[in-house]
Design a protein around this nucleic acid. Structure first.
Lengths: 341, 341
DNA sequence: TATATTTGTTCCAACGTTTGAACAAAAGTA
DNA sequence: TACTTTTGTTCAAACGTTGGAACAAATATA
């Protein structure tokens, strides 16, 4: 039975009759080590299948070259795309990315932070779980001096860099389009107001209505968790009103889908009777019938900027985290569900 | 400006006037340390916001308590569910889980392995990328003596524990059901044969046809990458046949959806003209019209067993990896797309 | 009272790597 | 020849934690 003993720098040193520190320097291309030694060391390292012990070097250097990402759910197209771009940029800079998911749970989010701090990551990029309304767990990261970047779901109170789209403005895009389609009574199936992005979508919605001189009817604005089920429930409520809406703007594609199902069950023509708009550009919005108009959040850019900002902060000596917002434009993707004929 | 210096075991020792090793033992509930000391140490640790340096303890103990998971794509409901269960079990056992995704790319998969080995994980749970047909990168894990478990997408040649469903048998479930619905000419939109699971679905399909005395028509079996686009392409091909099928069994839900779109564009009644079955029970299969019959893979069980097997292997001294398959039953979820009226 | 046992702690080396200081030898300069 | 500089290496300490050996004090047993 072969031994499982991993080869270390010391083994290489022994083979060549030099010291471990010479080997270390050779492997790290130290200028003072001769070409011959470097070559020999690399050769032996190769032969012995040497893999540096990251734990040891990270301990010594006080830097792990690991970046942690906290994602609410990985089964969302938006978050996977952000992730993909974060990885692309960070890998290029020599960082490895480890992902943890909160599953929208506050408790899980706290654990995620512990895992990442425990792993001694050099930086963290996170998006808040839906459940999260208290932010003290993020303070742990900040007091440790580890750079923290928030994306999509952030909060001013955390006072760090934030990258996301302009939710307020996005609601304007949606309302402008619906008004353009001759809709006069627009309802909003929104998220909980305690989440900053959903609050902004609601505020933007109200503002846009005012801009178009449409009256603001309280019973047309509903808050929920924006799941498919929630979308169904809210749509039923809207249909039961004495004066139902002629358009529905849902703050998530899943909620929009739920609403669509209910309308179809009631033989309501979408978009001619009621127009529908969702949010996030989940892939299914393009392949349901009718296809759903939605807001695209530019996931690629968000990921790229989050990663680049993090690298900047890591290299910035004595950076004191402050609220720095980086707001990107979103884009309305117009599909069948809102194009009246 | 406050200093960023992290508190160590030494700081606690200094405060209390005892040695670092006493502190270490107190924190680890060593039986020889007095109750008073333990309490005092924990109190000070709390006050100083002490977080153990995982790097140091992992280095010393030769165990990181970290488990790496490689997932082909996180934006699939099946993989997210597996992941969720892996995390649940492993967290309970005191392990932290870090996720890396291969995005179905062979190159990325190699990098993922490097990242995980670099992080000194105690074990790896992986599912192969679609692209992967050569497995030498997994040997690195094995020669290091790190336990490796494969799930869903595995290969006999890697010779480790494998957990997945019985793909051969699943095809029988599908065909039995379709035959039961009076289908006589069943087509299969399959995955590439080099991937074990897709090969087995094809073999099972053939075997089931034979069982029902249905002739095996080569032009009704197609191989592809099973994306929505691929499903569309393959369906068009099937419709162009002189004798088109009366049922389509797609080895992925996305391909099934593509096929459904094409059929609807051709005004074909699903299921009465052509019945349709997918694979994986992606959420959208339940909410498209008609809803799609599909095979549920029991993601929860797969995750649970993968995690439990890994823990077993980690604790097994001198375990020599061998091919050990754990095959679970799948379940056919019958929906509108295959229920003839 | 003498001896054995238990209890609570300190001591020290180790995990594998890195890094600045130290040093000897070789090469360059006066 | 004497001195400085350069080159290539070794030395030693450090990163933070752990755990066995050693040890002294307290307690139990004869």
């Amino acid at each position: 039975m072969k031994t499982k003993k991993k080869t270390t720098i010391k083994d290489i040193a022994n083979v060549l009759g030099i010291t471990p520190s010479a080997v270390s320097k050779a492997l790290n291309d130290h200028p003072r080590i001769s070409k011959e030694t470097k070559q020999a060391v690399k050769q032996i390292a190769e032969n012995l299948n040497y893999q540096p012990n990251h734990l040891a070097s990270a301990l010594r250097k006080g830097k792990s070259n690991l970046i942690g990402v906290i994602v609410p759910r990985t089964n969302s197209h938006f978050f996977s795309s952000v992730l993909e771009n974060i990885e692309k940029i960070l890998n290029k800079e020599g960082y490895k990315v480890i992902i943890t998911q909160s599953n929208e749970s506050y408790r899980k989010e706290c654990e995620n932070i512990d895992t990442l701090l425990f792993t001694q990551v050099d930086g963290i990029i996170a998006s808040l779980a839906n459940e999260t309304i208290n932010f003290s767990h993020f303070e742990k990261i900040k007091t440790k001096g580890i750079p923290l970047i928030l994306y999509d779901r952030g909060d001013n109170d955390i006072n760090v860099d934030y990258i996301g789209i302009d939710d307020f403005q996005s609601s304007h895009l949606v309302v402008d389009h619906l008004v353009n389609q001759n809709c006069k009574r627009i309802a909003h199936i929104g998220g909980f107001r305690h989440t900053r992005i959903f609050k902004n979508r609601i505020l933007g919605f109200n503002d846009a209505l005012a801009k178009h001189n449409l009256s603001l009817d309280k019973e047309l604005i509903l808050e929920g968790d924006l799941t498919l089920k929630d979308g169904r429930k809210k749509m039923k409520k809207l249909l039961s009103l004495s004066n139902p809406p002629d358009a529905v703007y849902a703050a998530s594609d899943y909620a929009a889908l739920g609403a669509l199902q209910v309308m179809q069950e009631h033989n309501i023509n979408v978009p001619n009777d009621i127009a529908l708009v969702g949010f996030s550009n989940e892939p299914f919005t393009s392949f349901v019938k009718p296809s759903i108009t939605t807001v695209n959040q530019n996931a690629g850019e968000i990921g790229r900027i989050a990663a680049e900002t993090l690298i900047k902060r890591i290299n910035q000596e004595n950076w004191k985290p402050t609220l720095t917002k980086n707001i990107l434009n979103s884009e309305l993707i117009i599909r069948e569900s809102s194009k009246k004929v």
